[in-house]
């Protein structure tokens, strides 16, 4: 079992875990967490694929997936922020509507 394969399998496990909980949970904040864990699994798969040794045994990592994951992390956090903002706004609007319904 090589390191790349081990971490690749770990990435797959994280992805599947996140997917299952993103589909089953009903709470929005948790669903966002699950999607983030899914994304982390994908990143881990990419980085594990980039981790290779050359013939002399020195680590010879591929910088292109690293750059992709780096942009991916920043895009993931902005997508998370957007999702959180949408959830907060929906919550506030629902509260306003309830108030109007009551009064």
């Amino acid at each position: 079992m090589s390191t790349a394969l081990l971490f690749g399998l770990c990435g797959i496990v994280l992805f599947v875990l996140g997917l299952y909980f993103a589909l089953t949970t009903t709470e929005m904040l948790r669903r966002i967490l699950a999607i983030n864990i899914m994304g982390n699994g994908v990143f881990m798969l990419l980085i594990a694929a980039a981790y290779q040794h050359d013939v002399s045994g020195l680590p010879n990592t591929d910088p292109v997936p690293h750059a992709l994951v780096l942009t991916g992390i920043v895009v993931a956090v902005s997508a998370t922020a957007l999702a959180l903002k949408l959830v907060c706004r929906a919550h506030e609007l629902a509260a306003e509507q309830r108030e109007e319904g009551d009064g």
Binding site: S2, L5, G8, L45, Q52, N60, D62, V64
Partner: peptide, 13 residues
């Protein structure tokens, strides 16, 4: 899929 492709190297390094 990961297992069957773990030997192929497609590095841009």
């Amino acid at each position: 899929a990961l297992w069957s492709h773990s030997e192929t190297s497609s590095s841009l390094a």
